[in-house]
Write a protein that binds this DNA or RNA. Structure first.
Lengths: 203, 203
DNA sequence: GTTAGCATGTAAGGAGTTACATGATTTT
DNA sequence: AAAATCATGTAACTCCTTACATGCTAAC
């Protein structure tokens, strides 16, 4: 039991939170959301949907044929929607901000679902991701000038990889700034007379 | 049979082509070569080494204790080196330039081993990778303005992803230029009187 | 009439990981 | 004496893909 990937499950629940969908359509949106260049296979998707349904987080109802005025009848499809339990479960997931949220496997999905996440959690995830990446940069730099020098092509690959990571850090910086502004705007709107006192700067 | 990943196998053979190594040390170099941020597990490495040895591509000999004048005795380790078959196999692999060489899973390893690859193959792989990436960019662009507009965060994620891909294309462009210069230098050195006629420009 | 797209599903397999098991040596 | 690093290995499990199986509808 529990063999389904948390990442995929979260992505599915996140999409279904927006609107009910059937598997085939869900896959297309998932491919956009995940940004993965290879499409998710049905062999992953359908068993995952069944598992979610079995756990009562989503519920599927067959819609055999569209009403006669609709042009395309198609094969009967199973439209899934979130249950109350599913909504609760998703909200719980989206309010957590531990390492699980900012590691490589999950960050993209969590970010794509920022629309359903509160500002505070968004900032925590972005900052967590940022420090994860800078940690990597430091590790890579000390290992590169510490140990023996690499082959020409290997080191070029390394250099390019680090450059991409640096760029991602700058991207995160700009996002963090935006989210902090949003938080400030929110708190200023809440109590207009006092200036924001809990806005901390880092590094 | 044949359950081992071609990517990992190639990486191992490539490193062993440079110098014989034992598993533990091999893993460290593999982590540099693969540039993967999570270290390769022993659970992957050792079975792969056994499989390569069983197929006669590498051969391991136990070096129980270092000679008495060496400081560190350590536990006995198995130092692997390429066999004649292994060298041949690796050369065959490194001279192929099909899609298998430029897809995501393999490109990094193939690039890191460019030092053992001839100029012509290097250029083919770089060009193959480049057209693979531009193909993706076109697909993503047409799908983004064709279908319905996305959530703010999803589209920002998409935008950033495409920017990274664009950057990689420019990186490839500069590498292709360098390799073409090398090829030109080689052919000019071979027959000095004739100017290079087989240097084709693309798009 | 055949290809392409819509729609759902299963079984087998591939490529890795984590957790476990063992043990020597070096550093703190 | 404890902890870190060196060194090799196995079993179970995870998460995904490919290939297969089915069938309907739309377009060429």
């Amino acid at each position: 039991m529990r063999s389904r990937s948390a990442t995929l499950e979260t992505a599915i629940l996140g999409l279904l939170a927006d609107s009910p969908l059937h598997g085939y359509e869900l896959r297309k949106r998932l491919n956009l959301l995940l940004g993965s260049f290879r499409a998710l296979s049905y062999g992953s998707l359908y068993p995952c949907l069944r598992s979610l349904a079995a756990r009562g987080l989503i519920e599927g109802q067959e819609s055999p044929k569209l009403p006669p005025h609709a042009l395309r009848a198609k094969r009967s499809r199973i439209v899934y929607h979130l249950t109350a339990d599913g909504k609760e479960y998703l909200q719980d997931e989206l309010s957590t901000s531990g390492p699980a949220a900012w590691e490589d496997e999950n960050f993209d999905v969590r970010f794509a679902l920022f629309g359903l996440t509160d500002v505070e959690t968004r900032i925590q995830i972005l900052e967590g991701r940022r420090s994860r990446l800078t940690e990597r940069l430091e590790l890579a730099r000390e290992s590169s000038h510490g140990s023996r020098r690499l082959d020409e092509y290997t080191s070029e690959l390394q250099r390019h990889g680090l450059e991409q990571v640096e760029r991602e850090v700058r991207w995160l910086d700009s996002l963090i700034t935006i989210e902090r502004d949003r938080r400030r705007a929110r708190s200023t709107a809440r109590d207009e007379d006092r200036p924001g006192t809990d806005v901390k700067e880092q590094g």
